[in-house]
Design a protein around this nucleic acid. Sequence first.
DNA 1: CCAAAAGTGTTAGACCTACACCCATGA
DNA 2: TCATGGGTGTAGGTCTAACACTTTTGG
Lengths: 249, 249
Amino acid sequence: MILKNLSIDCVIFGFKDNKLKVLLWQDETEAIKSFFTDRDNYEDVKILFEANPFRANEGYWALIGTHMPDEEDLDEFAKHILYQTTGLKDLYLKQVKTFGATNRVPFMRVVTTAYYAIINPEYHDMQQSEITKILRWFDIDKLPKLIFDHEEIINAALKKLREEVKYHPVGFHMLPEKFTLTELQSLYEVILGKKLDTRNFRKKIQKMDLLTDTEEKQTNVAHRAAKLYSFDIATYQKLREEGLKFSIQ
Amino acid sequence: MILKNLSIDCVIFGFKDNKLKVLLWQDETEAIKSFFTDRDNYEDVKILFEANPFRANEGYWALIGTHMPDEEDLDEFAKHILYQTTGLKDLYLKQVKTFGATNRVPFMRVVTTAYYAIINPEYHDMQQSEITKILRWFDIDKLPKLIFDHEEIINAALKKLREEVKYHPVGFHMLPEKFTLTELQSLYEVILGKKLDTRNFRKKIQKMDLLTDTEEKQTNVAHRAAKLYSFDIATYQKLREEGLKFSIQ
DNA sequence: CCAAAAGTGTTAGACCTACACCCATGA
DNA sequence: TCATGGGTGTAGGTCTAACACTTTTGG
């Protein structure tokens, strides 16, 4: 059974080429098949999907999401969708809010719960399924035309991410296992949308006791090689829960 | 039409007798009648309500809420519910999050979007309707038995309120028009659940430029009469949006 | 004049901002 | 040896936390 009036949409953020990106798709009936199990009535979902007048229009992109099955937990189903599209488990995933304007979907009543996720685009296995053919990363400031209120949802998620990043560490999920302080700083700059002072940034980060020096350095760079760091997972988890004592902004 | 699988629940906070309170009810079929209009099928709601096995049990209380009508905006309907129960418009209202565990309502699938509101219990007209007979304020730390996951919802709302109060002013909605600094401090202490230093608190508040000295004082108090202040609405709105430059904690 | 709450200032330490130069590397 | 980005320290100002006594009022 499918809950006709309730859907999930995921805003997937990634950091690539020094830019903040969002993963979008042009939905295709076959693609969502993998989200559902036998006990869900896939025919129902298909009918709902095909009723969407924007599907036919090449120019429109959408957040990754679909209608809720009756027998799935809301949070779990969001995780499941992310696993099916990116191949990643254990990712950073938070509810943004629920959008329930009466006319947000023109041809029927659908209330959608939005989630945002943070992933490292390098890690996710874009080759793993059918779905990947219709996925594309977009710069956060160069979004294509989006269906329904998906632009509003992305903006709400971005706002939430910006709030979050000031008081809680998030880089872990967007960066490779070993990274330089400059990469970490770029990530913050890109999320917050402004330049940070290098010396002050480094002082703040180091005071957190969050980074482990891997004793390695960059290789093959045409300048002084930067040290590579990794996150101390225990401290990372602790700070995620407790929040930073100060803010990065 | 009623959306069977989607409901709204409101956590209404108030500040009374120097304590943080939550407004709860023991739902009664007649009471929710006022939430709906003719175009909603009230019989459907009634059936859904009467299917709740906790209704019969005197000991259980609930958050104020009901199923969503098809043709109402989610946020607007939350406002409407609050107006019908408290007689207040223009109150402080925010979405907490959406709860969607499969088994949260044992006998059917209902996903609920929770809101929290902040009101001044003195102002709301508890006499105004049938509903008020079944409403009661409970101390936040002496909650009765609650149906479903309503205790979890209250805890999530409280957590959100505590986060909010650190960086944004909220007192406006909980206090009378004119209030003393001590009352404001008690409000913060009660929300945050800890004592604050009087001198430091006053310094912080005064630096915000948020309060107007009404040039009045308490009367008939058996001790030095405190000055009465009111909020500067323009500054209040500005700080609500921008947030405080520092935190109260 | 007593009880009760209102109201007020200072200091030491932590953190924040702003700012400019030398270092290591590969080409 | 040059171009490129990596890496570092200090000083002045601001915020924070801790702390105790005097003032005003009504009874």
